[in-house]
Design a protein around this nucleic acid. Structure first.
Lengths: 206, 206
DNA sequence: GTCGAAATTATACAATTGACTAAGACGACT
DNA sequence: AGTCGTCTTAGTCAATTGTATAATTTCGAC
């Protein structure tokens, strides 16, 4: 009896699949989803065209796996960022750091979303990711509202989350079209405002 | 001597061109830019395939004209909205009305933007439209800041404009993926906040 | 009604597309 | 070394693509 609990597969399978998914992400950045063909993809992955069919069955399925893998990583990162006990301003600053550094990441994410606008199955996944993202934020924002004495203001936690998320998305969207006007100014003002709140919170604690 | 100042063209030329551009917009809503082919387009326009080449030369040129025409209309509407002497809250409410009613319009605009992410010529046009949009807003926002006693707050006019624009874009983006969570709540809170400011402004004037 | 330019149609074409298959290479096991 | 399933390759296929062109129709000016 073969004692292997699972059927042995050649070590290369996962490796090659990964190369395809990586290549797809690079091409999303370089040419956008509409410009990706099976041949370009195989070329970029340094693999044979036939493997697209062998591993994924179709381009549709491949894109779906790209979406799955990418959004999983996205969620992991978001959760890690918001789950720390650090005061909100630190999380905000980390998020703004991503906003500046991760341009390719953002291009991938928005290309996937644009693709999803016209594919119900993809849309559902994108919607779930958004929900998960908001959920990861909510506790941190709720905490911040208390810490910064905003809890009895005009905006509920849910409204604050919406405000924060949409501003972020809007900024990314504009940057994809080469628009940066006003971004730094707004973000600097928010940072300054948060810093003042944080200072006040620290003072009150002493 | 023929006294026609311009060579006579069949009356149908402009009409047919318009049918193509209209059809392209409908298809942007229905299937997205990546799903538009010359044949689908001719079919949707109720015209012959050959006319795409006859009138536009190429699909690229056709899309460019769609972008031009659409953004021109967009700018006209934005300018008209912000150029009135009405208090800011009315303009805000009108804009929020568009946000709810003009879903197809938004889909067209975002598809064109997604298309532009990977085409420098399109990107430049989109960037210019964004600038023009902000410009149209700026005066109205600056006025509002005075009227609502926010002029000496933490945010400059430019920062306020960025905030307003990005929140709008973020909301539209989320809705394209079927996400509506928190939108109404945030918008209602903003409306309430603006209404209070407006009331105060009217009272102070009496 | 005839003429000629403009508009429209039908058709053709080369190139590219996603999908598929048969044959061979590889690599871990006995 | 031999075996067997996995992986990889090269090549094929029908369908679709954007573009082009030749033939036809339309329609206002004369």
């Amino acid at each position: 009896m073969t004692t292997q609990p699972k059927p042995i597969r050649n070590a290369n399978r996962g490796e090659t699949e990964r190369r395809f998914l990586d290549a797809a992400e690079r091409l999303l950045v370089e040419v956008g989803y509409a410009g990706i063909t099976a041949r370009k993809l195989a070329d970029e992955a340094g693999a044979n065209l036939g493997l697209v069919h062998y591993y994924f069955g179709s381009m549709e399925e491949l894109f779906l796996q790209v979406l799955e893998r990418f959004t999983n990583q996205l969620i992991v990162r978001q959760r890690a960022m918001y789950a720390t006990p650090a005061p909100y301003i630190e999380k905000w600053r980390e998020a703004m750091g991503y906003l500046d550094q991760d341009r390719p990441y953002q291009k991938i994410w928005f290309e996937l979303q644009a693709m999803a606008w016209n594919r119900p199955e993809f849309r559902a996944r994108v919607a779930r990711v958004h929900d998960t993202w908001r959920e990861a934020m909510r506790a941190a924002v709720a905490e911040a509202l208390v810490r910064y004495q905003l809890a009895d203001g005009e905006l509920s936690t849910e409204a604050w989350v919406t405000l924060i998320v949409t501003v972020n998305e809007g900024i990314i969207l504009e940057r994809l079209s080469g628009i940066e006007r006003g971004h730094d100014e707004l973000l600097a003002a928010i940072d300054k405002w948060l810093a003042a709140k944080e200072r006040k919170a620290v003072d009150a604690r002493n």
